[in-house]
Amino acid sequence: MGSRVEILNEGGFRSDGRRQYELRDMTIDLSQQGLADGSVIVAHGLTQVLVSVFGPREAKIRSHTIHDRANINVEVNVAAFSTGERRKRTRGDKRILEMAATIKSTFESVVQTNLYPRSQIDIFVQVLQQDGGLLQACINGTTLALVSAGIPLLDFVCAITGGVHSTSPMLDLSLLEENDIPNVTVAVMPRTGKVTLVTMETRLHVDRFEEIFRLAGDAGKVIHGEMKRAVKSRTSALVTAMGSGPRVGGGDLADKDGDDRMNDY
């Protein structure tokens, strides 16, 4: 029955009722998860990942330390129940390793690692549910988790998938669409407009690439807005909570600082 679903029908609707340039519902939950220094649960539609960040801290294995900057360690774990068909993935699974490597290389240029020499930043990605756009969710989640851990970044990294059905570009593909049409994942740094990641596993016509690439860049900015809003509201909630409790000196100042810092992002 899968192939009986139209990707983009005559009325311009996709199989889940969205139009071409509409992204799926994005929920960001920045609440504390366990002992992590920063953590977030990000969902794009039905794709859901939990990212926890530990560090910067001393590396568990001495040989992993680098003398002039921090080492980023990414581990991805896909829950067996995340797909329709229950399937256990081993740690050595090549696709998972590849995804971890992609995330690592994306963030190595964004995290200001030189501030923390001889230390390690651990990023643990737990995939809870999959419905297309997995890499995009992992990257957005990692950005937010790093932000919530207070690790200095040059910029947000916002990722989005785009695809082409015939000649019509589409954004934020669900699993159904991802299986059907050629797609590309793009991660941008919205403030500078730099692109930190472009990855593609299918063949896409070269004439269509530019259009998709630009769209994905614009969509990155929209995602950025959503992420910023989430970080801001979480911060202000925390601040309000702190404000309502017994005052520790200089609360006002901290509040202002926080806001200023946020405006930079």
């Binding site: 509409e22 799926r24 519902d25 614009d218």
Partner: peptide, 24 residues
């Protein structure tokens, strides 16, 4: 430039907006 938006799908409406079925 086209308008890019994020569609919202409140959790409360999940009964109507989410569909679960089993396939053989």
């Amino acid at each position: 430039m086209v308008e890019i938006t994020i569609r919202k799908r409140p959790r409360a409406e999940a009964v109507v907006t989410q569909r679960k079925f089993f396939k053989k």
